[in-house]
Amino acid sequence: MARINIIVALFFILFAALVLVLSAGIPVSESQPLTMGTPTFPRMLSYGIIVLSLILIVTNFHEARTEKKEDRKRMFEPDSIKMVGIGLLIVFLSVVLMVFVGFIIAMVAMNVAFLFYFKVKNKVVLIVEPIVTPLLIYFMFQNVLNIPLPSGLLFY
């Protein structure tokens, strides 16, 4: 864990640095001289993150160096990156698809894709789940809650 902690700390320092750079571009209002300016709060927080990250590095440094190679935990197993990555890609592409073809088609496609990906063999599930889930949700939103879901740019 010690090595992971150090990596985490480095990432947080990077994030804080980014916030510091971005906050340099925020103007300070002159109409409220009595209070701190708009960028002050995020700036203070960034310094806070940097200090905490340094503490995390210092407290883990010794352990990380002495940790035996076989005890080291990996943050991501290569196969889990692949597995989750594909899942994430399916969600992302479906949402992009939703912009064009609307909620129902995109979500049916997403559910079908996931069932194939999860190697579901049962034919009934393969057909019923992807159709029933989006349609049920669509009906509930459109008719019961009166909230329209995207119909897609193509069918506008």
Binding site: V101, G102, I104, I105, V108, A109, V112, F116, L126, I127, P130, I131, S151, F155
Partner: peptide
């Protein structure tokens, strides 16, 4: 076979929504 089925469902839904919109 399965892919065909998916395609079929998609086409069916597309046509339904096109007709519905008028």
């Amino acid at each position: 076979m399965r892919k065909l089925l998916v395609l079929f469902i998609c086409i069916a839904l597309v046509s339904v929504s096109v007709f519905a919109s008028g």
